[in-house]
Simulated assay, not measured.
Amino acid sequence: MKHQYLLLIIAIVVFGLPACKKDNKSSVAIIGKWQETKLRIYATDSTGAFLYDTTFLRPFTGSDYLQFNSNNTCIIGTDYYYYPNQPNGQEIPPQKITPVTSVMKYTALGSKFVLTPQSTLTNPGGFDVRDTVSTINSNTLLYHSVAYSHVPGIKTMADAYYTK
């Protein structure tokens, strides 16, 4: 009789555990195309002091987007280069370019998503880049990028906001 209970317990554990698996509903929420609406570029030195801080509210076009796909890839589109204001206050306007796209992989990490390049090539500029995406609400994403420069202590960051 003890063996029958043991077999019953084993069967419940084996067949019951998959039912307890949590679905990653957060990745389902980001799937789709998101349009860029705001961009903030800023940098800090080794003490955390701001070197510059520039926010752009335009020009964003249909070519400025994030497209999250169900196969864990993200297409990033842009058609402008954006430059931060100079320390002396000089503003450099965004530069129109031919639309370009890049493809990255994304994986869930807690409440955020980590973006990684599909290529394993070393960045020729010597930068170590870390990109994450988080949801602000059901219609707004924050794409946060940090570039650790080859200049010791300098971090350049960009916060891009997207809506569905």
Results as ranks from 00 to 15, higher is better:
76 I>W: 08
12 I>M: 10
31 I>D: 07
102 S>E: 14
78 T>M: 13
137 N>Q: 06
93 P>C: 01
129 V>F: 01
152 P>F: 04
30 I>D: 00
49 A>P: 01
91 E>P: 08
115 L>G: 07
53 D>K: 05
121 L>P: 09
27 S>M: 10
94 P>W: 03
84 P>L: 06
65 Y>S: 08
16 G>L: 08
41 I>P: 05
77 G>S: 00
145 S>V: 13
98 T>Y: 00
76 I>C: 06
150 H>E: 03
34 W>P: 00
42 Y>E: 08
29 A>Y: 04
110 G>I: 00
154 I>Q: 13
146 V>I: 14
132 T>S: 10
126 G>H: 06
9 I>P: 02
24 N>M: 02
98 T>H: 13
18 P>Q: 08
66 L>M: 12
120 T>E: 15
64 D>V: 05
150 H>L: 13
86 Q>K: 09
109 L>E: 12
36 E>S: 04
57 L>V: 14
22 K>Y: 04
84 P>R: 04
65 Y>M: 11
98 T>E: 06
104 M>C: 14
92 I>K: 13
17 L>G: 13
9 I>L: 14
97 I>S: 03
22 K>R: 02
10 I>N: 05
66 L>R: 01
121 L>T: 14
153 G>I: 09
53 D>P: 05
152 P>T: 02
55 T>I: 04
60 F>R: 00
147 A>Y: 00
61 T>V: 02
124 P>T: 09
74 C>S: 09
130 R>S: 11
114 V>T: 09
100 V>P: 03
118 Q>I: 10
136 I>T: 10
1 M>W: 15
137 N>T: 02
117 P>Y: 07
85 N>H: 03
104 M>A: 15
114 V>M: 12
46 S>L: 13
46 S>D: 12
96 K>C: 02
91 E>I: 07
117 P>D: 15
18 P>F: 00
46 S>A: 15
114 V>A: 02
157 M>Q: 01
62 G>A: 06
52 Y>K: 04
142 L>N: 10
17 L>D: 07
1 M>I: 12
110 G>P: 04
127 F>D: 15
1 M>S: 14
114 V>R: 01
38 K>C: 07
28 V>I: 09
151 V>L: 13
42 Y>A: 07
65 Y>R: 11
93 P>V: 03
103 V>Y: 08
156 T>I: 15
135 T>S: 11
20 C>R: 07
106 Y>F: 03
57 L>D: 12
125 G>K: 12
145 S>C: 05
17 L>T: 15
119 S>I: 08
136 I>M: 06
38 K>Q: 00
10 I>Y: 07
40 R>W: 05
110 G>R: 06
3 H>S: 15
105 K>M: 08
54 T>K: 03
2 K>C: 11
148 Y>R: 14
